[in-house]
Design a protein around this nucleic acid. Sequence first.
DNA 1: TAGATATCCGAGTGGAATACTCGGGATTCA
DNA 2: TGAATCCCGAGTATTCCACTCGGATATCTA
Lengths: 141, 141
Amino acid sequence: MRISTRGGYGIRAMFELAVAHGQGPVPLRTVAHKQAISENYLEQLMGALRRAGLVNGIRGARGGYELALSPADIKVGDVIRALEGPIVPVRCVDQNRAHDCERVEICPTRGLWKKLRDSMTEVLDSTTLADLCQEAANEES
Amino acid sequence: MRISTRGGYGIRAMFELAVAHGQGPVPLRTVAHKQAISENYLEQLMGALRRAGLVNGIRGARGGYELALSPADIKVGDVIRALEGPIVPVRCVDQNRAHDCERVEICPTRGLWKKLRDSMTEVLDSTTLADLCQEAANEES
DNA sequence: TAGATATCCGAGTGGAATACTCGGGATTCA
DNA sequence: TGAATCCCGAGTATTCCACTCGGATATCTA
């Protein structure tokens, strides 16, 4: 009942990019060091985030990564989905593959999972990177 | 971002026991067949549920399993916890091991995980086996 | 234009967890 | 007694996670 480190690392990395937003690209190495994440591993995650359209990768010297959108327009849920796939507690409430289970109509637990999915989605999609920055700034004072 | 089959199977098995509550023990085999779960595997899960005090195992011919409490007194969250451990999205918001991470005080994502944990817990602990039975009965009509 | 700095890409790997199977022992009912 | 049933521990195949590595490609700067 956990999100893996992929999601956790991803959020922390995106947080760093959000803090530096508007100040040019941040190299992977810098992000990895600030958040104590393996460089090689983070590289893979950034690839997924780039393919999801959440960050831009800028090559060459003075390159790095930057958010593709403003921090207020990137939801935490987007980051999790890009790195861990759809946010569903069990497959049978994944809208994309609704028919994996023939018992769908009579399953006593389906309603429960839907409720759980919705409540998780609500939390993750109502928080943006800008919110995380705001909260961090508040705690500092 | 999923609960494993352990939790899913567990809930479904407990649902069967809840339906038969008050009518004597139900053998593992019956539960397994009704819910299309491997007998051998389910046996392991029932062991965990028994050790958690949620079911009684009754040995011998005419034996089986029965709920140790009334369906209204068993929360879905109890079952999940017995089978999958604490309901926490990431370790650092597990109250039992709060100090695994030294960055606790400055971590920008901690608040988020707490919110997520609370919303998940709320759903799972506000639903009982009796609620599942009720819902199943409603859908039948 | 050389070379340093980066991203990009795919393959590979060790360990842990999942989802089981299997064999045999203990208990109880008929 | 013997059939039914729970109880228990060991073993196993598969999958996923977390991470490493080597090298290709692109871009800036001197």
